[in-house]
Amino acid sequence: MQIFVKTLTGKTITLEVEPSDTIENVKAKIQDKEGIPPDQQRLIFAGKQLEDGRTLSDYNIQKESTLHLVLR
């Protein structure tokens, strides 16, 4: 499924993921596309910060959901 990741600069990254993918996994995909190390990434969905060990389905993230990427 496709999800979108919006950065603070207003750029939107499109990722191909599975509901069973972990947040860690998603961060690795963002690193592949954008070169941002996962340890600098914070992903936010519905106002919650997403934890590395959880999966997209844990957070009920469905196709075409938009996550927000904050760098630390």
Rank of each mutant, 00 (worst) to 15 (best):
P38N: 15
E18Q: 12
I13P: 00
K33V: 13
E51P: 03
M1W: 04
D52V: 02
L67G: 02
R42K: 14
Q40L: 07
G47A: 15
Q49T: 11
S57P: 09
Q31F: 08
D32K: 13
Q41G: 10
A28N: 11
Q31W: 07
A28G: 09
L15A: 03
V70R: 05
R72A: 15
G35E: 07
E24R: 07
G53K: 09
Q2S: 10
M1A: 04
E16R: 06
S57Y: 08
E16T: 03
V26E: 00
L8G: 02
K27D: 00
K48L: 13
T66D: 07
K11A: 13
R54S: 06
K63Q: 14
F45N: 06
Q2Y: 11
V17C: 02
K11G: 11
M1P: 01
E16G: 08
R42Q: 07
V5W: 01
E24T: 09
T9I: 05
I30H: 00
V26F: 06
I3R: 00
I23A: 10
D58N: 08
P37R: 14
A46S: 10
I23K: 01
R54P: 09
G47I: 11
I44H: 12
K48F: 08
D39P: 04
L8W: 07
E34F: 10
E24W: 05
I44P: 00
I30F: 08
Q49I: 08
L71Q: 02
Q2K: 12
T55H: 06
E51A: 05
K27C: 02
D21M: 13
Q62M: 04
D21G: 11
D39H: 07
R72L: 06
H68D: 14
T14L: 10
D52K: 06
K33W: 11
Q49L: 10
D58F: 04
S65V: 14
D21F: 09
G35Y: 08
I61T: 02
T12N: 10
K29M: 06
H68S: 13
K29W: 05
Q31K: 09
I23W: 01
N25H: 06
T14C: 02
T66W: 14
M1L: 14
T14K: 04
G47F: 04
Q31H: 12
K48R: 06
E64Y: 08
S20N: 13
L69N: 01
V70C: 02
